[in-house]
Nucleic acid binder design. Structure first.
Lengths: 354, 354
DNA sequence: CTGTTAGCGCATTCAA
DNA sequence: TTGAATGCGCTAACAG
């Protein structure tokens, strides 16, 4: 591996000349430039990123904090954040480090202090996030995919859950639905102050109230089975129910199946709307109406926010709270009163599966 | 940010003494050690990782090459690789860089040459992978999650697809099934030499042949809808079919639904077995029998293989081809001839969804 | 047991 | 337009 001084020697110039030829930070005659690049080609020279970082005091490395794998199971959308951020960061000439750390861990700060990493992208932040506080106090650059309660001076991108749930309720209300069920996050997540859980819950309740509808909320773990169980129970307990709002992609298939097994047709007898990525909206035989969760955009913007901060392109913190677009597919329609059925024809499937 | 020389000054010792106190590479008296650590604490000293890397010529950074997001949609298992590798790498004191690059791109090599990254983990390798060839020729450390055709001298971890499909067929054969369908990868993937696609296909065909059964193969894109369509078509075209083998988690729900909609009960009338992660096996109302795809293990081992190579713990390349365990759940049972139904009661759902 | 010194590969300041 | 020299923060001989 050739070094810069090797190149300099071979081109018959000084080390600094080579450096400047590379960076273009001072004028170099065509002739010497030619010789230098020739020498670089001959030697198959590659600048040493680490050495450059040490001299520049810029590592061009940022890190994305992955939520701990044990707690919440990773949703489709989460991975999309990661993939999208990775791609964006790379396009902007930076490198993305993937860190796994318990949400409360502060050893993150060490690595920042070390100068190893120039900035951080956080996801799955809670309303009162210690990490955010710590970063803010020390003035380290970071961006959020998500929001806290107090976001003063923070760059972030998040879904506008308030708007999303409001739109969802409004859409259903417009179709004449009077009693709407929200299949939501696990209650513990609400208690722990997880933003999406709290905000969507609040917004649903207020929207339902404003429109004079009745709303029923039930939360559960992010698995199809739990979604199924919850929906099934709700359908029995609440005969007036004619629509579900689902906010987790993992719940969708379970909820749909519960509705089917109750003998209800979608959308004739029952409507379902999801606040999820369009990609997750296409069940085998049902395209679900969604408020499009823009996961890829969020990953991209989260990355851009951080890097613009680092390059000085953006001085002021920017906040993007994205309002999701409504895409009407086949799962929502005019409300019809349900017949008095709690479970029906499809129900045997479950018992039959010994 | 305090530097090592600051610490040295404050402790009244030489720079190198501080360095050695930190690394423990030479004996230091208790007294000076105490003073040094005291000074470090006073100054809130953090060693500068980049500088250390430059001096050591070891960055303690490895990279994981993410498959390009456009081509294959990312499966559950893929993300599990990433998350698991990230965690493992971190536990071993290294950092994981996420790279997105087209599979044919060789600019990867530049970064290795630069000394920025010490090694690579590749996933989604094809049987004849140019990247692997290039890495091998230049002697760069890397490990594979997956396999090529020729794996001489390469460290890798992969699922034993041969064994998996053989087990799947054997399990079904043992239950009396005579005609088995394989819902598999998109044909283009087989043609392009994608390992899992090719190996599972081959193995299925040979297993079926060996046991004197008849096997039908159909491949499609990795979405529930495509899985549904393919299964549906097969059920109509092949009345003798009594079981499906599914090798992509994304297909599972679609295939199951197609079977249900054909009026068949699982497992009484029809059996389904998946070569997928247990986590994906639990549909809302059906726990599917699987050959457990050990995605987390594979991510972990892939990372370990690379890092052991870097630390010199492993001189010889190691290859782990994991045989999946069979977990019998509710979706497989004794074979019964199907009645002459091609489509049935559930079929209306599809049409009804306008 | 401890101090001195010379790099690691590059950016950059100061001269020329 | 170019060269020489200094230093980024640390490790690792080499002395003592």
């Amino acid at each position: 591996m050739a070094t810069m001084s090797d190149v300099a020697k071979r081109a018959g110039v000084a080390l600094s000349t080579v450096s400047h030829a590379l960076s273009g930070k001072r004028p170099i005659s065509e002739e010497t430039k030619r010789r230098i690049f020739q020498a670089m080609a001959d030697l198959d020279y590659q600048p040493h990123a680490l050495a450059r970082s040490l001299a520049t005091r810029h590592s061009r490395i940022v890190a994305l904090l992955l939520p701990p794998s044990n707690s919440t199971t990773l949703l489709e959308s989460q991975f999309t954040f990661v993939a999208s951020a990775a791609e964006t960061v790379r396009q902007m000439g930076y490198n993305l480090l993937l860190w796994t750390a318990p949400a409360h861990d502060l050893e993150i700060l060490q690595m920042l202090q070390q100068g190893f990493v120039e900035g951080l992208i956080l996801m799955e932040v809670s309303l009162h996030d210690v990490r955010v506080e710590a970063l803010k106090v020390r003035g380290y650059p970071f961006s959020l995919i998500g929001r806290c309660e107090d976001n003063d001076g923070i760059s972030l991108v998040d879904l506008d859950f308030e708007d999303a749930l409001q739109q969802a309720v409004a859409h259903l209300a417009g179709l004449g639905h009077q009693t709407i069920g929200l299949v939501s996050h696990f209650p513990a997540l609400v208690d722990s102050g997880y933003g999406p859980a709290v905000r969507s819950l609040r917004s649903f309740q207020s929207a339902v109230k404003t429109l004079g509808l009745s709303g029923i909320v039930r939360g559960c773990q992010a698995t199809p089975q739990d979604g199924y169980e919850v929906a099934r129970a709700l359908l029995v307990e609440q005969p007036a129910l004619t629509a579900f709002i689902v906010v987790l992609d993992a719940h969708l298939s379970g909820v749909v199946q519960a509705v089917w097994e109750a003998g209800l047709h979608i959308p004739e007898d029952f409507s379902i709307i999801g606040v999820i990525a369009p990609r997750s909206a296409h069940l085998p035989t049902l395209a679900v109406t969604t408020l499009d969760f823009p996961a890829a955009d969020m990953g991209r913007i989260g990355a851009e926010l951080l890097i613009k901060q680092l390059t000085g392109e953006a001085i002021q913190p920017q906040q993007f709270v994205l309002r999701p677009a409504l895409t009407v597919r086949q799962s929502t329609g005019p409300a019809h009163k349900r017949e008095g059925i709690g479970s029906a024809k499809g129900g045997d499937r479950r018992e039959s599966a010994t």
